[in-house]
């Protein structure tokens, strides 16, 4: 059984949410939410490590600072504040 079907059978699916993968962990996110918001909602605080090793996360919320960058479905350097969650999306904060 696929994951979406599995979620459905267990009644975890509702019209307002979708299922996404955050660093390999399965989570639900409101439809229309940005990836940055989904990460924050689920307790991800720093979402990237700076060149001198500091934790960083979203600053501008509008696509200019790149502090929120993550890999989405294998594509690096995606700005999490600009991308809306989609069913089955895989987000990685380790390869940004």
């Amino acid at each position: 059984m696929g994951d979406a079907a599995h979620a459905h059978a267990h009644g975890e699916h509702d019209a307002g949410h979708c299922t996404i993968w955050l660093d390999g962990e399965r989570r639900r996110a409101p439809i229309g939410a940005s990836v940055a918001a989904a990460l924050a909602l689920h307790g991800w605080r720093g979402t990237r490590t700076s060149v001198s090793g500091e934790p960083r996360s979203a600053l501008c919320g509008m696509g200019i600072c790149f502090e929120c960058r993550v890999a989405i479905d294998g594509v690096p350097l995606r700005r999490a504040c600009l991308v809306t969650v989609r069913e089955g999306m895989e987000v990685s904060t380790h390869h940004a």
């Binding site: 996110a29 409101p30 229309g32 939410a33 940005s34 940055a36 918001a37 989904a38 924050a40 909602l41 979203a58 501008c60 919320g61 509008m62 504040c81 809306t84």
Partner: peptide
């Protein structure tokens, strides 16, 4: 505010 509009808690 922009992030909150997109669901940031």
């Amino acid at each position: 505010q922009a992030l909150a509009k997109s669901g940031w808690p």
